[in-house]
Simulated scan of single mutants.
Amino acid sequence: MAHIDYYLGTISPWCYLAGDRLERIAARHGATITYKPLDLLQLFDRTGGVRPADRHESRMAYRAQELPRWADHLGMPLTLRPAHWPVNMAPSSYAIIAAQARGGDVGGLVQAFLRAVWAEERDISDDATIRAILTEQGFDAGLADSGLFIGAETYGRNLEEAVAAGAFGAPFYIMRETDQRFWGQDRLDFLDRALAAA
Rank of each mutant, 00 (worst) to 15 (best):
M1H: 07
A2V: 03
I4L: 04
Y6N: 02
Y7W: 04
Y7N: 00
L8Q: 12
T10A: 13
S12A: 09
P13Y: 11
C15T: 12
L17A: 12
L22G: 04
L22Q: 00
R24G: 12
A27K: 04
A27C: 07
A27D: 12
A31T: 11
T32A: 06
L38D: 05
L40N: 03
L40W: 00
L41R: 08
Q42P: 03
F44D: 01
D45F: 15
R46E: 14
T47C: 01
T47A: 05
G48E: 03
V50G: 01
R51D: 15
P52Y: 02
D54H: 01
D54Q: 05
D54E: 15
H56K: 00
H56S: 01
E57W: 11
R59W: 12
R63A: 14
Q65N: 05
E66A: 14
P68F: 04
R69T: 14
R69I: 14
R69Y: 12
A71G: 07
H73C: 08
H73V: 13
G75A: 08
L78W: 05
T79H: 09
R81D: 02
P82Q: 03
W85A: 03
W85S: 11
P86H: 07
S93V: 02
I96S: 10
I97T: 11
A98C: 09
A99V: 09
A101Y: 00
R102C: 09
R102N: 02
G103D: 04
G103F: 10
G104K: 05
G107V: 11
G107F: 02
G108V: 15
L109V: 08
F113S: 13
L114I: 10
L114M: 08
R115C: 09
A116W: 02
W118R: 00
A119F: 12
E121S: 01
R122C: 08
I124V: 15
I124F: 15
D127V: 14
D127N: 00
T129N: 06
T129C: 13
I130V: 15
I130M: 08
L134S: 07
L134Y: 07
E136H: 09
Q137A: 13
G138M: 13
G138C: 13
F139N: 13
D140A: 15
A141L: 10
G142F: 08
G142D: 08
A144W: 14
A144T: 10
D145C: 08
D145A: 12
S146Y: 07
Y155N: 03
Y155F: 05
N158I: 01
L159H: 06
E160F: 13
E161W: 02
V163I: 14
V163W: 12
G166A: 11
A167L: 06
G169Q: 07
Y173I: 01
Y173A: 01
I174T: 01
I174Y: 01
R176A: 00
E177K: 00
T178L: 02
D179M: 07
Q180C: 03
R181K: 13
F182E: 00
F182Q: 06
F182V: 05
Q185E: 09
D186H: 04
L188G: 03
D189N: 07
F190V: 14
L191K: 10
D192V: 10
L195D: 12
